[in-house]
Design a protein around this nucleic acid. Structure first.
Lengths: 138, 138
DNA sequence: AACTTAAATAGGAATTATTCTTATTTGAAA
DNA sequence: TTTCAAATAAGAATAATTCCTATTTAAGTT
């Protein structure tokens, strides 16, 4: 039983070929938007309907199998929900990378100062990755 | 000379009635999406075209007069660019609040660990505001 | 205060994105 | 294998966004 099949069934979703293919493609891409995902999948799955994509992306996001990554001025991207992490987005090459950063202390601080219970966090740092820093120096 | 007029002219944009009205409405609302903004503005500005809205929101975001606030599963919202701040989003009432949180140390940590130059940060904490915490207790 | 003109707008068409509908297919439980 | 609720494909319908162009306007100049 594939990992994806298990994930789906644990969430009361039938493990259809379409869903598994979507999860595989997202996992492989890391972060990918609806269009690119659809084009990729269509190559090996010519009957896949766009409606099926939208429906499943939405359902699987609702069930927290997927995570929507929203960045200003960009299309929504999807990633597999894994360990909590932040996103580093390079202004140069556009790459999105997952990184861990311990922010428990900041969350606590924020909760105390604002009388707010933090249940989830979403952190994006934009800037320049190593490669793009180096290119600027040349 | 109104503040908005000045902001626009500093960015080489003509201070049109439309733009000033858009800025006023966003400032008043705090965070607002295209639809709500358009409906609000139309009341007092019946000829305003939707295309004008989109064009200006996009231009003013490009010029960093506005900031796009993107949250998963929600329409893009716009806010006036002011001091850096994080967003607290309540799962109960949906309200978005601006708060300051010093994360310089975390940014430095992240830069060193990942050889990444951070130029901007975007932090959203979702959870429960005071009101909605209290309601859950009752 | 009128003149000039590049920039901006209104209005609507065109395009793109997303959701909805329904007949057919399929995963998986019995 | 049979059964059937759930899911899909295909395409229509709707919603969101961009594009086009004739007209208007902000603001600099006389």
């Amino acid at each position: 039983m594939s990992n994806y099949q298990e994930i789906l069934q644990n969430n009361n979703l039938k493990a259809t070929h379409q869903r598994i293919a979507i999860l595989e493609a997202i996992d492989h891409a890391g972060h990918i938007d609806v269009d690119k995902l659809f084009k990729n999948l269509r190559k090996h799955f010519p009957t896949l309907a766009l409606g099926t994509m939208y429906r499943n992306l939405s359902e699987m996001s609702d069930k927290h199998i997927l995570l929507e990554v929203t960045l200003p001025g960009q299309k929504v991207k999807y990633e597999l929900k894994k360990e909590p992490h932040i996103h580093l987005v390079c202004n140069g090459c556009g790459k999105i990378e997952d990184r861990t950063l311990d922010i428990e202390d900041k969350i606590k601080e924020c909760e105390e100062e604002n009388d707010f219970t933090v249940l989830d966090s979403n952190i994006v740092f934009t800037g320049l990755c190593q490669k793009c820093q180096d290119q600027k120096k040349v």
